[in-house]
Design a protein around this nucleic acid. Sequence first.
DNA 1: TAATCATATCGTTTATTTACGATAAACAAA
DNA 2: TTTGTTTATCGTAAATAAACGATATGATTA
Lengths: 106, 106
Amino acid sequence: MRLNVMKRSLEHIEYPQDTESLAKFAKALAHPTRIAILKQLENQSCCFTGDLVDVLPLAQSTISQHLKELKNAGLIQGELKPPKIKYCINQENWNRAKNLFQQFFE
Amino acid sequence: MRLNVMKRSLEHIEYPQDTESLAKFAKALAHPTRIAILKQLENQSCCFTGDLVDVLPLAQSTISQHLKELKNAGLIQGELKPPKIKYCINQENWNRAKNLFQQFFE
DNA sequence: TAATCATATCGTTTATTTACGATAAACAAA
DNA sequence: TTTGTTTATCGTAAATAAACGATATGATTA
């Protein structure tokens, strides 16, 4: 007999759009490696994956994974410069994030 | 040769203080429920745990857990008003967070 | 065509997060 | 003292995140 059977609402709660967006951006920023990557991109506007691999003490695959998350959040975008990929801030979404945080902290 | 011979470092990487702080604050904001809680606190300056339990479709223990994370991040503080607890924004750390985000988005 | 380079993706392991119900703790009032 | 109220904490399950090495992909050059 299992006493501690857990119910759990699989459908997730709906929050206002702004709340969801802000949380999503915050989640993208919620790891120091990703902050470091974004700071790098802010400084030199763009850079290649390899530049980051040289600078950060993490496996190439790990960095690629962080880049993917930043891309999924819309904060960066990649441009093909074969055989490399040049990553830049996505200025439009960057500004959206900026405004959401600004407005949140009022 | 790149550093991809690296074994998983159990000791975690040291980033600059600002990077760590920003990531920590972002992590606290990285869930819509916590954003919702903070918005509530911003609106009415303070509120009791019970008020949040009435408003949010989550178990009391879950909300208490989210409050704990916000408290650990320093964004809120609790004041004993027996048998209730009144939560408020921690203005000092709130401003620190605000400044870090502002500066980050430059 | 084959080899090379830069990067992404796969598969896996471990750690962390999110959620719940149950229970404990702290205090006020009866 | 006992009861009720409010909130935190415990124990656990499930989901997600973070890290790695290995491998695949896509473009360029030999």
